[in-house]
Design a protein around this nucleic acid. Sequence first.
DNA 1: CTTTCATTTCGATGTTTAGCTAAATGTCGT
DNA 2: ACGACATTTAGCTAAACATCGAAATGAAAG
Lengths: 104, 104
Amino acid sequence: MNRVFKALSDPTRRRVLQLLRERPMSAGELADHFPVAKATMSAHFAVLREADLIAADKQGKTITYRLRLSVLEDALLAFADSFGIGFPAAAAQPALDKPREESA
Amino acid sequence: MNRVFKALSDPTRRRVLQLLRERPMSAGELADHFPVAKATMSAHFAVLREADLIAADKQGKTITYRLRLSVLEDALLAFADSFGIGFPAAAAQPALDKPREESA
DNA sequence: CTTTCATTTCGATGTTTAGCTAAATGTCGT
DNA sequence: ACGACATTTAGCTAAACATCGAAATGAAAG
């Protein structure tokens, strides 16, 4: 959970998650949305991966990242819950969030 | 919003919020729960105050901090909302334009 | 098999942050 | 006014972090 919050503490990383909210994207495609070097973005991806907030699918030359919504959801819900903050009707459908692959 | 997430990125600060969840506490009382110097805790309080997550009530010698739950709640809900977590009503509305984020 | 492309890793640098001790501030009781 | 108490501010260090350009990795294409 600490890793998740650390990952969320950076605006660039939060925006990466936002971008992945709609569709998976390659590292380069994501990087094109930000005014920083690709190496910098790669480091951000690593942090997000460490937190298990994104997953990487390697397909040939490119690496496609996708959001692991359930991980974000679980962390947010657990935290909010511990404050009695009610998230109305959570867990809609895990359609975009791929099957079990080392859930944290 | 950035300040809130930055504030939440530290475990000590998250724990402070948890402690304040039930009842307000003085700075010293809070500090007694952590193995760090009071001055260090004071810095943490400042960060939480900057993020508006806690409010200080000065009463004589002591300063009593209380949780500003609505601020935490608003931030959490807004963020979760933008991912379609919780609030099924908001999920029906596509929020493509995300608000610009200022890091101060 | 060499080049090209996508991405990561390496090494270096400036900034931020958490932590400390010591000193300052403000307040209470005497 | 003085001394004790609660908290913050100041000054510092060490670690963590964001960032970069350059080099390395690995896969496809010629």
